[in-house]
Design a protein around this nucleic acid. Structure first.
Lengths: 125, 125
DNA sequence: CGACTCGTACGATAGGCATCGTAGTACGGC
DNA sequence: GCCGTACTACGATGCCTATCGTACGAGTCG
């Protein structure tokens, strides 16, 4: 299941380029999953950057010290845990924080996490 | 490193029962480590229970669905990440949240995490 | 001392995961 | 139609880790 070939009603979905990616629904997001996703330095860095711009960023915008395969992996972990939303826009893949969903599920958590990460950086991390 | 055998000045430490355990100093506590520690359901449960009583609890107080070896392992992860403080009290080993240290390092984080965990439980998880 | 309880240490195991490299697919422009 | 760019898929690898069982050490109480 899930061959991206299918396009029976493509004409009726204007905003979708063509293929779309599996995201957990808001109520499927698990705290443990979110914490696990953010416990990796690379992923925490991605989330911090996304929160910084407050909008969407393409995968290629990030200059991480790992290969592109690994970068793809990290973005998938973030998406599957419900932290970010990914959508194809032409050849680029745009990433955005799921702030509303997270704030609704866990009020104050995301801000506390971002603040904690920022403080750690200031302390010399 | 870290052979607990060493005890050059044991006579001068009155409050210590006998053996003591390696804890990270406050400034050594890493956010990633804390998040990783709390991303395990068993450990999150332990921390929630510790926060609930607001004091110390012995390891044996917890009735976790794993063996004692595994329980020991989880407590060690929590201690080494800086989330809890462990101290021997006779034959028992008491565990307490390092609330002050965590609040100082990451203001609001622990409360946000506990609140998030509580909400998730209420939602049926 | 001896027995019992609490917790540790160690080895084994199985699964997860961060990383890489290479080969391949989708899209947009020439 | 062809090429370049952006990202993916897949397989390999080595490390980390959650789990167990058994054997052991430290204290307490009779």
């Amino acid at each position: 299941m899930g061959s991206p070939k299918e396009s029976g009603a493509a004409v009726t979905s204007p905003t979708v380029s063509s293929r779309d990616l599996p995201h957990p629904v808001r109520d499927e997001i698990r705290l443990e999953g979110v914490l696990h996703a953010l416990s990796d330095p690379m992923r925490l860095r991605i989330v911090r950057e996304l929160a910084g711009v407050g909008g969407e960023l393409s995968c290629s915008h990030f200059d991480l010290p790992v290969t592109k395969s690994t970068t793809t992996h990290h973005f998938r972990v973030l998406r599957e845990s419900g932290v970010i939303r990914q959508v194809y826009r032409g050849t680029a893949k745009m990433n955005g924080l799921r702030r509303e969903d997270l704030d609704e599920l866990f009020p104050g958590l995301l801000d506390a996490l971002l603040d904690a990460a920022a403080r750690q950086v200031v302390r010399g991390g």
